[in-house]
Design a protein around this nucleic acid. Structure first.
Lengths: 158, 158
DNA sequence: TATTGTTATACTCTATAACTATA
DNA sequence: TATAGTTATAGAGTATAACAATA
């Protein structure tokens, strides 16, 4: 197969940004992150911090390298992120007992309480997005389409 | 109405990143941009440069302030972008004749030829994304959902 | 006085290389 | 010798304030 998609091929002057996947994807992502930032401004939580806390909450004891891989970020860039959360006493590093080069991450008690608040705020944010989309069925459809863009690897837990 | 969406409300331990709109949106956007960067590495064109050229190609004579507004970027950050494209002799600034504070932007002849190449490369990139999505119908559905996330303002040209 | 484009600057995010302490 | 985490650093992208030219 040559093109494979049977697409509506058009002339160069038809290069409208409004119909370009990457452009629209970027704009939508920025709008969603802005809503997130507004929602969490009082808690002073950024998306990357949210994602780390969410992973540690669901997978206590995970090593930093594993978290970096799940988030597709460099281990080097995870350090300051975890430093900040540790300084706020939300998560703690515990030396691995079998391999003492590693750190296993856990929520502190304050971290557990923080997660409860975080979840409430996130739920409001997410509901707002779902409302904009038109409902949970549209949300599911969107997640499915985004998964397709992400390539073969389907959802595999966080 | 309280929540308004009739959502599948869940416990805090259900905070799986795989089901979070903003997270999946960000990952998909990064994947799409990576495909774009790979596609355009030989032409040395970044997404922001692509978007400026696409707008000037479709709207010759537009002022910088108008372009900045369409792209939702700060006019200050547009300057270096246009400087670079001008140094590559792809676009040119012409003093506005009614308001001589402004610059109207146009493609050069080389710029016109560049757009033709750019369009071909972009078409391959976009076809690859459409193929991943499953076809143009799915692409249209995705664009529609992303427009909903972007709020009330519907497609309004670029 | 207000606006367009510009410069300078700072802050965030991300990527790489080199270091340390363990293995 | 290789790996986990760390440090330092450089490059993008983006935001604000101040300036010159013009309105």
């Amino acid at each position: 197969m040559k093109s494979g998609t049977g697409d509506d091929r058009i002339a160069p002057d038809m290069l409208s940004l409004e119909r370009i996947i990457g452009y629209k994807l970027r704009r939508a992502q920025l709008a969603v992150f802005q809503d997130f930032l507004d929602s969490f401004s009082q808690m002073e939580l950024r998306p990357a911090e949210f994602s780390v806390i969410a992973i540690v909450a669901r997978n206590p004891g995970l090593k930093q390298a594993a978290i970096a891989q799940m988030l597709a970020i460099k281990p080097a860039n995870l350090v300051a992120l975890i430093d900040g959360l540790q300084k706020r006493s939300l998560i703690e590093r515990r030396k691995g007992d079998t391999d003492r080069r590693t750190y296993a991450l856990f929520l502190t008690d304050a971290g557990e309480r923080f997660v409860a608040r975080m979840f409430g705020t996130w739920r409001q944010h997410e509901d707002r997005l779902i409302e904009r989309l038109g409902g949970t069925a549209e949300r599911d459809r969107l997640l499915d389409l985004l998964d397709r863009l992400l390539g073969q690897a389907g959802p595999d837990g966080d």
